[in-house]
Amino acid sequence: MKILVTGASGRLGSVTVHHLRSLGYNVTGIDLIEHSSTDELIDILDLDAIERISRGVDAMVHTAALHGKHYDLNYSREAFIDVNIKGTLNLLNAAVKNGVKKFIYTSTTSIYGTAMNSETQAVWVDETLIEEPRDIYDITKQCCEQLCKDFFHKEGLEAIVLRVARFLPETKNLMINHRLYRGLDERDGAEAIRLALLHIFKQFDVFNISSGSPFSKEDLPVLKFSPLEVIKKYHPEAEEIYKKRGWTFPNTIDRVYSSDKAAAIFGYTPKYTYGFLLNN
């Protein structure tokens, strides 16, 4: 399988390129920034270059985007629309023109936006939760998901969406806390992409991809106000480990990401979970 990965110099893109190559896949990485995982410096807004690089490709993995951090840096709405929407449209059109069979779009769990707010309990975030975008980043991601759906139904391109969770650079304490309910290790993200590449999707679909959580829906009211009580129920060893490492527990947990659908449909099972970090 010959695979084109956009955003190959980014956190998820680079790990995905190296992961797929290590398993024998023929991978070409493109980005605007030089990196060991990037073969060519190509702007996804350059349609001619995209059409050229995608000839003979079996699948596209699209991770390139302006992200939430760019919103914080005051990038314009026009920039988000150009890169995220027009760039994605260029890739979809090139895929159809060159007979690419599969297109995996990495969206974001941020798209759920204000739907994740509740004053009374933590929110269970699975794919049935209706997204409520908060900003131009979320809006462009939502639009691109719909583009993928349109191309699936009207062009016969097997395009599916992976809504990936948070994988920002942060302290070990914050990282492990986020792995409880809203985080993702890039290595798990890369494996989810590989599994999605292998699966045949008969219909357009969207999947949350996170590190999973030990929690259940029954825990949601307590998680909002007394998360330690619930954490100790599932990981009684956590309190002593946190004490030894000088870590602090979250004061509140406002959401719980579920990747159960991805597990059921194409076998996604995260490895680098809260329990993994706690005991390593």
Rank of each mutant, 00 (worst) to 15 (best):
D135A: 07
T106K: 00
R134S: 12
G68C: 05
S118Q: 06
T120V: 15
S118Y: 02
S118H: 02
K69I: 08
S107C: 09
N90H: 08
Y71E: 08
K86F: 09
I130P: 01
T128M: 10
F103S: 00
L73F: 10
H70G: 04
G87R: 01
F103K: 00
V125M: 15
N98I: 08
C143S: 12
V123R: 11
L129K: 02
L73R: 10
I139M: 13
Q121P: 02
E119N: 10
T128I: 12
E131W: 13
K86I: 07
Y71F: 15
Y75C: 08
K69S: 14
G87Y: 00
L92H: 01
T88W: 01
G68E: 07
K97V: 12
Y137I: 04
I104N: 00
T114F: 11
G68T: 14
T109K: 04
H70Q: 14
Y137L: 04
N98D: 07
P133A: 08
Y112I: 03
G68N: 11
H70C: 11
R77D: 12
A115C: 06
F80H: 06
N84Y: 03
G87W: 00
R77Y: 07
Y71R: 14
I136D: 04
K141A: 02
T109Y: 07
T88K: 01
W124L: 09
Q121D: 08
Q146K: 15
H70I: 02
K69H: 09
I136G: 00
Y105I: 01
T120K: 15
I104Y: 00
G99R: 05
A115G: 12
